[in-house]
Design a protein around this nucleic acid. Structure first.
Lengths: 238, 238
DNA sequence: CGGTTACTTGACTTTACTCAATGCTAGTGG
DNA sequence: CCACTAGCATTGAGTAAAGTCAAGTAACCG
């Protein structure tokens, strides 16, 4: 019996290049045991010793840090099929936390299993690529937050999420499911929920976006990307 | 004849743990051929195909991106002994540029040589560690820029640079050489040179810093770290 | 249906930016 | 050795962007 998300990691890795059948089977084997995590729950917290690696098979999760003022900075958003902390176990303790944003299906993978996966050259290459892309996304977010005004930031991020969702086959006719609150988006972009709301309202009025039932429809992708100064180069998609 | 920087990579890697003598010798062998690059020159530019890996043995360099408005965002600052782009050759083209901030001694290392280094377990482990720390620094910078006001940002960054310099043995009695312009610092922190200047003047008036001849003296490290909400945890030293 | 959470909006405040003038310092050529 | 220059640092005045606060509305949940 195939659950719809069973192969999200395969889908993700095939964004880099095709995988041998044997590798696909191995991955499906290794991602059998999922557990359901409710929204807004830490999967692993700052200061903890990382035992397992965490893979999201359904839902949205994030990497974040809290600052003294109590504000949260989201450092990365994880889509289905993405690892939260693939290599982190090399370090002795977490310097940030991982948390769900929506309810998630999570797989906890012991490091030995990761080593087993890395023995397959195609998988190893794809994981490398995926790690480097994660870093590139992080860099792009830094450029966003450091040097782009709110409107551009929001448009850039939504452009990015759209393309990443599309690469995973998670878009349908220009729209995708995105159950983040505007406060979540603000925490990812170094803004406040109020600013994010103002930008989104603007983009809706301009006929570029539509938002209904936590579903975002990109009505004019070219325009959205132009506003966001977005180019997909940094995602290094095949 | 030992030039003072010959072993900066060794010093860097020994921040993680001791290296066998043979590994140290290998590294010294592989970092013989340095070239002098003047300040403010690109070492490799966005869009180029990465052939070599670049190692800084003397001077300061950075990773940066330019945005449409013409502003620069510095994504990372490289100290002596640090690689600019260790694994980047896995990707087909650079999504950012690397440039010197001051005059630098640079080593260009072909990927084959990197693979040779990675065959030594101690070196491989240390390079892994160093890569993960680079990422942690990037994340911390994102938190800075996203959620901390200018004064905190500047204090945080100077605290970090001080500790990194210290780990490399590049501090002397609480001071270190730092030939960046205030505009460079601003570009790293998502600020303007004017804001950076105001913060630095303030810190000087408060007796926390002193700046003379491009040399920064940290007069009160505890206070600086407190202002910057800095904790060295994310640098994962030793 | 009541209660909670998130979204929306407006009024006001704060922070950092922009612009612009002036001061300082190191390097250059006479 | 000294004027000259270029680049950087310093400062102040005014502006703009985003934050804060607060109130009202809409959507969702038990």
């Amino acid at each position: 019996m195939v659950t719809p998300h069973r192969n999200m990691l395969v889908r993700k890795l095939e964004g880099f290049g095709p995988l041998p059948d044997a590798d696909r089977d191995l991955i499906e084997d290794l991602t059998q045991e999922t557990r359901r995590v409710p929204a807004q729950s830490d999967i692993i917290s700052e200061g903890q010793n990382p035992e397992n690696v965490h893979l999201i098979l359904d839902g949205l999760a994030c990497r974040y840090k809290l600052v003294d003022s109590g504000h949260r900075q989201i450092l990365a958003i994880f889509l289905p099929g993405e690892f939260c902390d693939l290599y982190i176990f090399i370090l002795k303790q977490m310097d940030h936390s991982i948390s769900t944003l929506t309810a998630c299906d999570v797989v906890d993978i012991p490091r030995e299993v990761i080593f087993r996966m890395l023995e397959r050259p195609a998988i190893a290459r794809a994981l490398w690529w995926s790690t480097l892309v994660d870093e590139a996304i992080l860099r792009e977010r830094l450029v966003d937050i450091g040097r782009r005004p709110a409107r551009v930031r929001v448009a850039h991020m939504l452009s990015e999420i759209y393309v990443r969702m599309q690469a995973l086959g998670l878009t349908e006719g220009g729209s995708f499911d995105f159950r983040l609150t505007q406060t979540d988006i603000a925490d990812a972009l170094g803004l406040t929920n109020v600013s994010v709301n103002k930008v989104i309202m603007e983009l809706r009025r301009d006929g570029i976006l539509d938002v209904t039932n936590s579903r975002i429809s990109v009505l004019n992708q070219d325009e959205l990307q132009a506003i966001g100064q977005f180019s997909a180069d940094y995602l290094h998609l095949s």
